[in-house]
Design a protein around this nucleic acid. Structure first.
Lengths: 200, 200
DNA sequence: CAGATCTTGCACATCGTTGTGCAATTACAC
DNA sequence: GTGTAATTGCACAACGATGTGCAAGATCTG
């Protein structure tokens, strides 16, 4: 197998992602087997467990940052921006979920929180603007609302995983829920999201 | 130390709770040291790690069930009931957080999900009634809303932990946020919660 | 004080995981 | 085909965690 090392590396990372989502403590052996490969081979691509995790986290963080930057490029209306960011995040749900899931157990990977800080900060800025303009209404400070946004996303990913929420148009529901959690009237939120998803 | 074994057992469980919240993988040694005791002593009270976890989970689940049953005893107004349940859950936040935190890594303790199922079901029933009556407005099914409720709670516990949310009247904010996430107008939600906390 | 009850401080066996080394084997490219 | 690069299949050392055994010590109760 010459030259196909890159493809193998990618496949290992993909499988590792899903395995680590299932169990953040999945061993290198579990990951390797799931990827149809022997443990030793994984070590051929990644010198250590940490290295594999880092590569995964890096990928995911980049995707999240990129998606959010795109969604918040011009904040005409904070509510619209929030909806866009939710829809964008939902698209790359797996990577996002990995970050959140790993960030909750700070033991293994150091610096995930640091890595995600700019994302949260930028999101909080948008939320703050919405609060200032009266578009959002909440007793929570903007940064805490950013936490809520993150967890709403996470919770509904799990709901889909557990089969209690149909994946079909879950993205829309997620966006609506985030808006209402920020104090946007429910009807308005539904209309706004409907408008966004109908005419992208 | 004769007879004081019970007190020690309680102290170990209390410390174990906070240690496991900090790190779900805390070793028996870490827990023992944190409790000012030698590892061997912990094994004197709990035959295995599993046993300790089970005792913890049992305590927490009982507290959560009890608190929710009390809060949902008579659902005059679903919104008021939801607010009550959030305030009640916030009171026993630590135990609740342990359950959610451990439930996410189902490896160690089997049956947390099963244990919490009645709680979620009862909550979903209340949410469903609110949706039927038009008190709540959401594109999500009631059960998914229950997931959101859970995660809002969890997210804001973390926010308090991280120091970005003042613990003072966080309980009120949590309740308001859950209400707005369920589609209750923000102003109405604030008034309702204010009324509940002013005159209990 | 005496005695029952816990706690302590080791020692030990066991297990699973990580990371490395190296020779044999496989599969692709030219 | 032949060579090159990757994968495999062991073996091994090192760690850390769990769970147990037992003798010595501390501490409260009566």
């Amino acid at each position: 197998m010459a030259g196909r090392a890159d493809a193998n590396r990618r496949r290992i990372m993909d499988i590792a992602l899903t395995e680590l989502l299932r169990d953040p403590d999945a061993s290198m052996d579990q990951i390797a087997r799931a990827a149809g490969v022997v443990r030793r081979t994984v070590y051929g691509h990644f010198p250590s467990r940490e290295a594999l995790m880092s590569a995964l986290v890096d990928d995911a963080a980049n995707a999240v940052e990129l998606a959010q930057a795109e969604a918040l490029r011009d904040v005409d209306d904070p509510a619209k921006a929030l909806a866009r960011s939710m829809l964008a995040a939902w698209e790359i749900a797996d990577g996002y979920r990995l970050l959140i899931s790993l960030a909750q157990r700070s033991v293994t990977v150091e610096g995930i929180h640091r890595r995600l800080e700019p994302v949260r900060r930028e999101c909080a800025a948008m939320l703050q603007r919405g609060l200032d303009e009266g578009r959002f209404v909440s007793p929570l400070p903007a940064i805490a609302l950013a936490y809520v946004r993150e967890q709403v996303l996470f919770g509904l990913m799990q709901a889909v995983n557990d089969g209690v929420l149909a994946p079909a148009d879950a993205g829309r529901s997620v966006a609506v829920t985030a808006l209402t959690a920020a104090g946007v009237p429910a009807v308005e939120a539904e209309e706004l999201v409907a408008g966004l998803t109908a005419a992208p």
